[in-house]
Amino acid sequence: MRRKSGFSFGLFYFLVVAFILFLPILLLVVFSFNDSTKLVFPLKGFTTQHYADLVGNREMVEAVRTSVLLGLGSSFLATALGTMGAIALSRFKFPGKGFFTAVSALPLVIPYVILGVSLLIMFNQVGIKLSAWTAGLAHVVISIPYALLIISSRLAGFPDNLEEAAMDLGATYWGALLRVTIPISFPALVAAFLICFTISFDEFAISSFLVGTQPTLPVYLYSQLRFPTRLPLVVSLSSILMVATMIIMLLAEWLRRLGDTTR
């Protein structure tokens, strides 16, 4: 295969697309330092005032707290359920396996509005009061496929006779899982946890139906987007979040790769 290393039309196209992908993000960061309450050109001057204003904002701090707790809870549950499902799928043969695989992958693509309103109806009918936690239950549903995919691919990377060896040496099946399988797949578990966390932390379409009076951060941000005077605040907060998310995802990606290379 011919591999060009110089400049080419392909590279040019790639860089143009990458530039467009980064443009809106850069724009938000630029405006977060702009000394004006309006998000319009031309830029006025440099300030860090918008960032200083963030700290005193009670509602926002509360929304961040809600989202962090929700993210931790829902990704812990999703990772645990995903691990169980991944072990079942990669180590067992059973009738209905195809059906289980299909159902667990569907939350990847099902329109979120449908998921949101169907859960809204169910919680309402059963009499469960809406709160951040009802949104969290939905976050677990959409996170499971990601956890399942990441952990399955790690489990496929080493043979199940390691578990058998542990059992030959006297471990029970569950002991072998806890002391052999889980430790070997640990980087993948952490990667899955981090990715599920960012999914929950970023989720708006479902949460907006289910949070009741406890806004998560995206729901809070959305409510602020209609007040023009609040926009600089939103923009500076979003810049911080983007940097935080990037750090978390780079960590997750690094852990996922770490798991892959020890194959």
Binding site: A88, F92, P107, L119
Partner: peptide, 22 residues
């Protein structure tokens, strides 16, 4: 059953059941 039960039930109750109720 122990491995498949929890994720299976979770998806059944919080994914498929709500669609049925709807």
């Amino acid at each position: 059953a122990v491995l498949l039960g929890p994720p299976g039930l979770y998806l059944l109750i919080l994914f498929l059941l709500p669609l049925g109720i709807m």
